[in-house]
Design a binder for these strands. Structure first.
Lengths: 127, 127
DNA sequence: TTGACATAGCGAATCGCTTCGCTACAATAG
DNA sequence: CTATTGTAGCGAAGCGATTCGCTATGTCAA
């Protein structure tokens, strides 16, 4: 089995997001969201889904009608791939540089800050 | 003045990286790096630079010959834009989710961990 | 059955990014 | 001067991603 390293493109990501948010959905539903976001045609949505099916970015259950599509990767996996890509392309492969920038970009709550601290502790222990 | 929100494309980023690493450079130098990385033609490099000039991703000094190109934005700015984009597109606008993922992606040294802790402290204070 | 509407698929047009061939001109060596 | 080499620019081809028109089939109500 050859695993696909390529990142989801812009529209593909938009569709994945919809699936992540709403769970497995028929085209009709996916389309209504996509249409709301950018006014695309129904055919376009169907086509994108068939392309994504080929690329194995989504799967579908063909037994029920209308067919139900679901994301083939979690939000977490997609995010990590994109992070790895960003780190490579911009931060010379040094992820910590990105972490620092991302922190500065964020407006974390106390709770979130605490969570990150705990994560740091764990990473230190696991040496 | 209209500010451009669009992100650098793949090759644009490759060229920006070269400029970030080597500082202001003539086409010849930029090309030799780009060629080493992916075997592109000299014309391609020139063309890309002219496109990037239009998009204001680079500037150039036309007084000297050969002309000298320089990145119009820092690595930091570019990185932040791309982070913002990633956070929007994948993490529902919640940057901390990205921070956590990015941390897990990284293999930080003690020093780096310490730096992040300090950053967290500062962010806490600045409330 | 028939008409109206929902579902699914396919090929071709379009679009933006990338690549390159060809041309032009300047600087330099012979 | 003339040939060679370095620098710069432009238009169009090529490519993958995206969009859409058209067609086919399924479903359901009258």
């Amino acid at each position: 089995m050859t695993l696909d390293n390529s990142l989801p493109t812009a529209v593909e990501l938009q569709i994945l997001r919809i699936l992540w948010e709403h769970g497995p959905s028929p085209v009709r539903l996916i389309h209504s969201r996509l249409h709301a976001e950018k006014g695309t045609n129904y055919s376009t949505t169907v086509k994108m889904l068939s392309v994504m099916l080929e690329k194995q970015l989504v799967t579908r259950d063909e037994n029920c009608s209308p067919m139900v599509y679901r994301a083939a990767m979690t939000r977490g996996i997609a995010g990590r791939r994109m992070i790895r890509n960003l780190v490579e392309k911009v931060y010379d492969g040094v992820a910590m540089n990105l972490v620092v920038h991302a922190l500065k970009e964020s407006k974390p709550t106390d709770k979130e800050l605490e969570a990150v601290r705990k994560l740091l502790d764990e990473m230190e222990k696991r040496k």
